[in-house]
Write a protein that binds this DNA or RNA. Structure first.
Lengths: 203, 203
DNA sequence: CCGCATCCCCAAAGATACTG
DNA sequence: CAGTATCTTTGGGGATGCGG
C-alpha cells in the first residue's frame, strides 16, 4: 500500500496493517499458528496471490513470523510476533464497535468449530469481571474464568449460560436476559452485561 | 469496498470503516466538525473523488453526518455521529500500537496548530492518572487534567513538562525522563509513563 | 472560492491455472 | 501443500471541469 506520509501513530499503524485482509489475517492467528492453506480456507474470498502478498508484507512489518515445522511435519506455519499479539486491543476495539451494527446471527449460519471460544476471547474476555461463567451454546462449550477463556465447562462456575447463538447475542449485546437460560448467580451475568455496555475499554 | 461476507464483528467493522482513508477521516473529525475543503487540506494525498466517496460511504454507514451551516456561513460541515464518536477506542488502540514503531519526530517536522492537544487526547488521555499535568512543547500548550485535555496551562498543576516534540516522545514512549524539563511532582510523570508502558511494551 | 463529478491512468484485488 | 504466473476487474491518485 502506498504510505500515508503522515507523522501520526494512527497513519503509521494503518501503513502496516491497514490493507485489505491484513487485520482479519492477524485475527485468525490470534488463537495460534496456522498454515498457509488453513489461512486460505478461513479467509474466504482472499485469493492466493493476495494472501501470499499479505503474509510477506506482515512478515516485513514484524507482525508475523514464518516458521518451518521440524520433520516429520515438514510444513510452514505462520504465527504472531510479540508486535502482532500487541494488536489484540485493536482487534478487540474493532470487534466491540462492529457489534453495534452487526445484528444477531442468522439461523442458517453454521459457525466453525471453536467459534464460541474465539468469540469470547476477542470480544468479551477483555472486559469480563473476575468470575467463572460457563457457556454452552449450540453444542459448543467454553468457560470465561477471570478474564481467561478455556474450552469446556469448568467445575463450580458462578453461572452458566445455555442457548443458541442468537440467544447469546441477545444476552450480551442487547442485554436481554430473557433469551438464554441462565443458571447460578444472575448477578455476575448482569455485571458482565454492564461491563460490555460501558463504552470505555482498551485494556 | 467489497464486503468480507463473514459473520464477525471485526469483519463487519472493517466493511464499514476499513477502506483507505476512512479511519483517518474519522480521526480528523474527532476534534470537531470540518468542511470538505478542510478535510481535503488535512488528508494530504487523498484525492477529491476519493474524499467525496468516503464521505458518502461513511454517511451511509451512519458514522458521520452532513450538516448545512445557517446563513451567512452557508457551507456544509461534516461531523461524527454517536456511532462515529464510538470509534474513539479503535483510533486510540491503533495509535498506541503505531507508537511502538513510529519513531521520534524528525527535526524539520512542522506540526499543525493544535497538534499537542490532539495528540494528548487520542493517545495519552485514556490512560492518564488523575492528576493535572501541563505541557509546553515547542510553543504549544495543553494540560492533561484528570483524563481530560484542555488548551493552555491550567493553574496549580501537579507537574509541567517542557521541551521539544522529540523530548516529549522520548519521555512518553521511551520513558526517558532526562530529555524534557520536568517541573513539580516527578512522581505523577512516572505514574503517567507507567500507565502508558503497562499496556504498550515498547520494542 | 467551495463542493464535488468526470476522465484518464496505473496499482492493487479477484479469479483461475499451474508448478516445485 | 505452498505458493507463483497470468489475466481481468476494480479502485485509488491526479488533474481538470463546472455549477452554486
Amino acid at each position: 500500500m502506498r504510505p500515508y506520509n503522515q507523522y501520526c501513530p494512527v497513519a503509521h499503524a494503518l501503513d502496516l496493517v491497514g490493507e485489505r485482509w491484513s487485520l482479519l489475517l492477524v485475527r485468525e492467528l490470534q488463537h495460534g499458528p496456522l498454515r498457509y492453506s488453513d489461512l486460505h480456507d478461513r479467509l474466504v474470498g482472499c485469493s492466493t496471490n493476495v494472501l501470499a502478498s499479505r503474509l510477506r508484507d506482515l512478515e516485513t512489518a514484524g507482525v508475523i513470523t514464518r516458521r518451518r515445522l521440524p520433520p516429520p511435519a515438514a510444513s510452514n506455519v505462520y504465527e504472531l510476533t510479540e508486535s502482532g499479539r500487541a494488536l489484540g486491543p485493536v482487534i478487540a476495539a474493532l470487534a466491540r464497535w462492529g457489534l453495534r451494527t452487526l445484528g444477531p446471527p442468522q439461523g442458517d449460519a453454521a459457525p466453525s468449530p471453536g467459534w464460541l471460544e474465539k468469540a469470547l476471547r476477542t470480544t468479551v474476555a477483555p472486559f469480563a469481571p473476575s468470575a467463572r461463567i460457563g457457556f454452552s451454546i449450540d453444542g459448543e462449550e467454553a468457560t470465561l474464568d477471570a478474564g481467561a477463556v478455556v474450552e469446556g465447562l469448568l467445575d463450580e462456575p458462578d453461572a452458566v449460560v445455555r442457548g443458541t447463538p442468537a440467544d447469546l447475542y441477545a444476552l450480551l449485546v442487547d442485554g436481554d436476559t430473557g433469551a438464554a437460560e441462565i443458571d447460578g448467580d444472575r448477578a455476575v451475568i448482569e455485571a458482565l452485561i454492564g461491563a460490555l455496555a460501558t463504552t470505555q475499554p482498551v485494556a
